[in-house]
């Protein structure tokens, strides 16, 4: 396996980690805002807060890890993506900042403040929408080279149906992932009222998720035949992902085996995410940038991989400890302890 392939696999895995954790986080923020605004915070807020509180900062680190690693392993992405993404990513950053900071302000300083809760709930939904534009841009067709510098064609981007179908998919996926996860989490917390409510949300969002996913595949066909071909070549991965989706929804419908359901949920998205990633290979930005021509020098690559291995040796046990103490700690999940500082 070449160094650049190792690099991109690690980064893609971290991005997947971010997508899942952040989806749970953003969706939870939205459901929390919804329950605060409809004066039903007694049902949901507790269980959502208990999950989110100790892990929110960790979510952000996954994102930072991804983009720092990207610039490290593939420095040319800084030039291409840095230049064209100024506006879209700045908007994501502003939303992300409001979301992260106001989450903390509301939780620790002003519990139950409607304005603060709404601010971070809404910002959370817009973040995936704005980040998803990066995927769209990477498909090619929206960037031109002018005097050897890349330029983003905003008009083409914002009038493309592909853009908007990816935006819709990202929002629906966030709401679905989060609802399924929280159904299980609330169930574990023996909070059946909250669990049933989240189950309802999860079922509501399952149909739009399926429709928007299929819609994107159709959009792709018209947008970029070459990329569409590549996607079709890994059709079986997408097919397994679709089957897992149906099993997940079925378990949810039958109220059965929620633990298994969450594992299937993650597998479903992992398969789809990696299938998409494989179909994207070797392009980072179609057709200008591949992982081969943008790769850093060998010395730096080896240094980064060594640091990654050492860092992982430090982080994985720490993450396991974090999850053992909170997400997988029965007493904590059920709210028996309140040991916040």
């Amino acid at each position: 396996m070449s160094l650049e392939l190792i690099g991109i696999c690690v980064l893609w895995a971290f991005l997947f980690g971010y997508v899942i954790i952040a989806s749970i986080d953003f969706g939870a923020g939205f459901y929390n805002a919804y329950s605060v605004l409809t004066n039903r915070s007694d049902v949901l807020s507790d269980v959502i807060k208990r999950y989110l509180s100790p892990v929110w900062e960790v979510t952000n680190v996954f994102l930072v890890f991804f983009f720092v690693g990207m610039v490290g392993f593939f420095p040319q992405t800084a030039f291409y993506y840095g230049t064209i993404l100024l506006v879209p990513v700045s908007i994501s950053l502003i939303l992300l900042s409001i979301r992260g900071a106001y989450y903390a302000f509301e939780s620790y300083g002003m519990a139950g403040h409607k304005g603060y809760a709404t601010a971070y709930g809404l910002a959370g939904l817009l973040i995936p929408a704005s980040f998803s534009v990066v995927f769209t841009i990477s498909e090619g067709g929206f960037v031109e080279m002018v005097n050897n510098y890349p330029q983003l064609n905003y008009k083409a981007l914002f009038t493309s149906p592909l853009t908007w179908s990816i935006v819709v998919l990202s929002i629906v996926a966030v709401l679905y992932i989060s609802a399924v996860f929280l159904t299980w989490y609330a169930h574990k917390a023996r909070d059946h009222k909250a669990s049933n409510l989240m189950r309802k949300f999860a079922l509501i969002w399952s149909a739009p998720l399926a429709i928007s996913a299929v819609g994107i595949i159709i959009e792709f066909r018209g947008h970029n035949p070459f990329r569409f071909e590549k996607m079709v070549s890994v059709w079986w991965l997408f097919a397994i992902s679709a089957i897992l989706f149906f099993v997940t929804t079925w378990l949810l419908w039958m109220k059965r085996n929620y633990g298994m359901m969450v594992i299937l949920l993650f597998s479903q998205f992992a398969l789809a995410f990696f299938a998409y990633g494989i179909s994207h290979y070797p392009y980072l930005l179609y057709p200008y940038l591949t992982i081969h021509d943008s790769f850093t020098n060998k010395e730096m690559a080896i240094a980064l991989i060594i640091v990654f291995i050492l860092g992982a040796a430090l982080l994985i046990p720490s993450l396991i400890l974090l999850f053992k103490l909170f997400v997988f700690n029965k007493d904590y999940v059920r709210g028996i302890h309140d040991e916040h500082v």
């Binding site: 100790p54 900062e57 680190v61 974090l322 916040h340």
Partner: peptide, 9 residues
């Protein structure tokens, strides 16, 4: 970030 979360809670 991980240990701050643990410490606070």
């Amino acid at each position: 970030a991980i240990f701050l979360g643990i410490y606070l809670y």
